[in-house]
C-alpha cells in the first residue's frame, strides 16, 4: 500500500465503527408496493467491517432492503439503527438520519456516473458542494480514492471513454469520497464480464480489508460470496430465509429454496 493510501486508511479507521460492532440493525421492516408485500418483517444486522452478500431471486426484496438502508425508500413499518443511532421508526426517518446519512454510500447496477462531467468532477462535486471542501482538498481526496480503485490514470476521462468495469470502479471511488462506513452495492457486476466483475469485487474486498468499510452486496457471484463474504443472506418471497456464514450457507444448506437457487445460479 502506498504512503498516501496508508494515510487515507488511517483517516477511515478513525471514523469507522469498531470492527465487530453492529453497524446496521433492522427490526420488523415491512414494505409493500400496492398489494405486493416485498419485505415481510425483516430482521437484519450488519457488523462494521463485514462483507454481507445478499442473494435471492428477482423481486424477493433484496434491493428494497438496500434502498431502505440507503434512505432511498422508506419502509412502511419497523425500526432501523445505524452506528447506534435510531434512524428510522414510526414509519419515518428520525433527525439522527441526517447526521449519519453521508456515511452510507450506494452503487447501482447501471452506470450512474454523470456523463457531462469528467471523472474528477464526478468525484469532487459532492464533497465540494455538500461537505464544503476546498478545490485542492477535494482534488487530493479524489486522487487517493482513484488510487484505491486503480483508476488514477483516468482522472480527466469522460465516463463515455471508460469501459463498464472502469465506470463501476470510478463509481466506487466516488462513493469513497464521502468517507462511508457502509457501501451498499446493488448488482453492480451483473452487466460485466466475469473477469471484469472479479476485478470490481476485488476492489470491494480490499476496501473491507484495508479501510474497514462494511459492504452489503447483492450479487449472483457465488464464487465471490463463498470466498469473501462474512455473511450470506438469502431472501425468499420478502423474507430472510437464510442468514449464515458462507460455509454454512453453501455447503450445509438445508433450506430447499436456497439449494434450488444455488443450483440454478451455478448452472
Amino acid at each position: 500500500m502506498s504512503e498516501n493510501s496508508a494515510a487515507h486508511t488511517g483517516t477511515h479507521r478513525d471514523i469507522a465503527a469498531k470492527s465487530g460492532d453492529v453497524l446496521v440493525s433492522c427490526r420488523g421492516l415491512k414494505k409493500s408496493f400496492g398489494d405486493r408485500e416485498v419485505m415481510k418483517s425483516i430482521d437484519f444486522d450488519m457488523l462494521a467491517g463485514d462483507i454481507t452478500v445478499i442473494i435471492g431471486r428477482s423481486g424477493s426484496g433484496k434491493s428494497t432492503l438496500l434502498r431502505a438502508i440507503a434512505g432511498l425508500t422508506d419502509p412502511d413499518d419497523g425500526t432501523m439503527t445505524f452506528d447506534g443511532e435510531v434512524v428510522f421508526e414510526d414509519s419515518k426517518r428520525t433527525p439522527a438520519w441526517k447526521q449519519v446519512d453521508s456515511h452510507v454510500g450506494m452503487i447501482f447496477q447501471s452506470y450512474t456516473l454523470w456523463p457531462h462531467m469528467d471523472v474528477l468532477k464526478n468525484l469532487t462535486l459532492a464533497p465540494r458542494k455538500r461537505l464544503g471542501m476546498s478545490e485542492s482538498a477535494a482534488l487530493e481526496r479524489a486522487e487517493k480514492a482513484l488510487a484505491e480503485v486503480g483508476m488514477s490514470d483516468h482522472i480527466h476521462s469522460r465516463p463515455s471513454e471508460l469501459s463498464g468495469g472502469e465506470r463501476q470502479r470510478v463509481a466506487i471511488a466516488r462513493a469513497l469520497m464521502m468517507r462511508p462506513k457502509l457501501l451498499l452495492c446493488d448488482e453492480i457486476t451483473s452487466a460485466l464480464d466475469p473477469p471484469v466483475a472479479a476485478e470490481v469485487l476485488d476492489v470491494l474486498r480490499r476496501l473491507k480489508e484495508e479501510e474497514g468499510i462494511a459492504v452489503a452486496l447483492v450479487t449472483h457471484d457465488m464464487a465471490f460470496a463463498s470466498k469473501a463474504a462474512d455473511r450470506v443472506v438469502f431472501f425468499h418471497e420478502g423474507e430472510i430465509a437464510v442468514n449464515a456464514t458462507p460455509d454454512d450457507a453453501f455447503n450445509k444448506a438445508e433450506d430447499p429454496e436456497l439449494k434450488k437457487f444455488i443450483d440454478a445460479v451455478r448452472f
Binding site: A70, G71, L72, D101, S102, V104, G105, M106, F108, T112, L113, W114, L125, A126, K129, R130, A171, R174, A175, M177, M178
Partner: peptide, 10 residues
Amino acid sequence: QVEAGKMLRL
C-alpha cells in the same frame, strides 16, 4: 443518476 446524487447527499 439522480439517485446517485441523493446517495452523495446533494
